Amino acid sequence: MFGLEGFGVIMGFVLTLLSTLICIIYGAKNWNHGHLDENEVDRKQAWLEEEQELEEQL
Rank of each mutant, 00 (worst) to 15 (best):
V14A: 11
N39M: 03
I25M: 09
L4V: 14
E56Y: 03
D42G: 03
V9L: 08
L21T: 14
T20E: 10
G12R: 10
N30A: 05
A28N: 06
H35A: 03
G6C: 06
Q52W: 11
E38L: 03
N30R: 14
E5G: 09
D37M: 00
E51H: 10
Q57H: 10
T20F: 15
C23A: 15
V9N: 12
I24D: 03
W31M: 12
M11T: 12
H33S: 02
G8Q: 01
L15A: 06
A46Y: 05
S19Y: 02
G3D: 07
G8Y: 01
L58S: 13
S19P: 00
E5D: 11
E38T: 05
A46F: 03
F13D: 03
I22H: 02
Q52S: 05
V41C: 04
T16C: 13
I10K: 13
E50H: 03
E56H: 01
F7N: 05
L54S: 04
E50V: 00
M1N: 10
L54K: 15
Q52M: 08
F7I: 09
E51D: 12
Y26F: 14
L58D: 03
N30K: 11
I10D: 01
M11D: 01
E50N: 10
Q57M: 13
L36R: 15
E53G: 09
E49D: 13
N32M: 02
W47Y: 15
M1Q: 11
